[in-house]
Structure formats: C-alpha cells, structure tokens
Write a protein that binds this DNA or RNA. Structure first.
Length: 258
DNA sequence: ATGGCTGAGCTACTCAGA
C-alpha cells in the first residue's frame, strides 16, 4: 500500500499537477494539506472519475485537509483535537494494514511565525493538545500513522541554513522538543530511520530561486508507531512535482507499507 | 537580505504562508 502526504497549497489551483502526480505515482491513499477551500468546492467528482474517494475537512481560503483514497476509509473524523481557532487542520480515519486496524492521522500543524506572538502560542498549544491526545489514543490503539505538514524542522541537517532558522517557529528548540516528545511516545520519523545522514527536503519557498539553489527544509513527515515498523517497505521524497510549472511549494513524501 | 513569490477572495488590496 502506497500512502502519500502532500501539502498542495490549494487543491483547485493545483488540480492539473495533482492529476499528473496521481497518474505517475499511483498512490493508494493521498493525505492532502492546505487545500484552501470549503467542502462544497472540493473537486471530489474529478477524483471520483479516476477512482478515488474524497474525505474532506475544508475551510474557506486557508488551511483544510483531506484524504483521497482508492480503498474506503472508515470512521473519518475531524475532531481528534479541539482547535481553539476552529481551523481545519486534522482529519483521521481507519484502514486495515495486514489485518492490523490502523489509524491514519493527517495533520497541518500551524506555522507559528512570527515568534513571540499569539500565532506562536497557538502552534505551541496546538502541539501540546495533539501530543496529549496521541498519548491517550495509544492506550487503546498501537497502530498509528501520523503524517502531514508538521511545520517542524527536526534537526540541523533538515534545513539549508540552520543558523538562519534557529529562532524561527519551525526550528526553535522549544518546538523541536515537542517533536521529540511525540516521537518518544513510541514512533519513528520514518524518513530519518531509513536515511541516517541524507540531506533531503520537502519544501522550498517560492522566493528568489530557492528551488534552483536547493534552499529547502524537511518539514513534511511520516511518524509511524513502533508496532507498525515491521510493515514498512520504503520511504521516498518525490521531488518531481516541485520541478513542474505552477508547483506547490511542498513536494510529496511517499510511504510503502504492507 | 524581514526581501521576495503565490493563492484566495475579490476586483484593490490584504492576509497567510515558512
């Protein structure tokens, strides 16, 4: 089973790129973030035509997350954490992996910049609530996949210039510690697990030739619970979509799991 | 290099992204 996470930066502006990507990479399940549209304007019919069910938690203009899936996803919910600002940042559902009932958790973590503002506090509090809920979830379910745009650079090697980002909301030690705290509940950062020292990124901003200069960062992740580690076949950052015309600023990260 | 580039909503310009 191929499960992919991709922050598309607007599903409607990106529709051609998404369809081309699906044709090329044939994911079974796509976790989308930043769809930037309400449920009623999500192009579900277009995806239906190529064999994908849509499960959407949209929002006007900003945020919004969704699943596109060939297999049915059960028990889809958008209330995993209570969002204080009522932003659409999380959608969960259940699939079966090798007879293990598995919860898929698709997240779009707040950016948090600028630091020392209410935006930063919102990110921090969002992560605190999320970790608390994951801890609770683990008491009844050991098969969890958390994936999406975390807006967290885990380590120095995950950004082109760590000095420049040390006081940024994506890289501040306080935020990275939240990431470690989450992992320490019993997860692995699957990209880093299979690539101990490789420098690869999932995001390059649109400014001043960042893509061409490879000024990027690794902020989109797959955290898989220890119980599912034996099921994993591979993980891959697919840079091709970022090189196309009218790209998202993020590129897909692809997990193969049995 | 706190700039510059892109999308939504809307139709001039602001907000948000990271």
């Amino acid at each position: 089973m191929k499960i992919v996470s991709w922050n598309v930066n607007s599903v409607r502006a990106r529709i051609e790129n998404i369809l081309n990507y699906i044709k090329d990479s044939k994911p079974d399940i796509l976790l989308l973030q930043e769809i930037k549209t309400q449920n009623e304007n999500f192009p579900s019919e277009i995806f239906k035509e190529i064999g994908y069910n849509s499960y959407v938690f949209g929002q006007k203009s900003y945020n919004g997350v969704a699943f596109l899936s060939k297999p049915k996803i059960e028990n889809v919910k958008n209330d995993f954490v209570k969002d204080k600002l009522k932003q659409s940042r999380i959608i969960t559902g259940e699939i079966s992996l090798n007879k293990k009932k598995t919860k898929l958790i698709n997240i779009y973590v707040p950016n948090g910049n600028p630091v020392d503002t209410e935006k930063y506090e919102y990110k921090k509090n969002w992560l605190v609530s999320f970790i608390k809920k994951i801890k609770k979830e683990l008491t009844t379910n050991s098969n969890l996949i958390i994936s999406g745009d975390f807006n967290i650079i885990p380590e120095d090697i995950d950004v082109y210039d760590c000095k420049r980002y040390e006081n940024d909301a994506l890289f501040r030690l306080e935020i990275r510690k939240k990431y470690r705290e989450l992992i320490n509940l019993g997860f692995n950062d699957i990209y880093r697990y299979f690539n101990k020292s490789k420098k690869e990124y999932t995001f390059w901003d649109y400014f001043s030739g960042s893509w061409q200069k490879n000024y990027g960062m690794r902020i989109d992740h797959f955290l898989v619970s220890n119980n599912l580690l034996e099921n994993i076949k591979s993980i891959n950052i697919n840079k091709k979509p970022r090189s196309k015309t009218k790209p998202s600023d993020h590129t897909p990260i692809e997990l193969e799991i049995n």
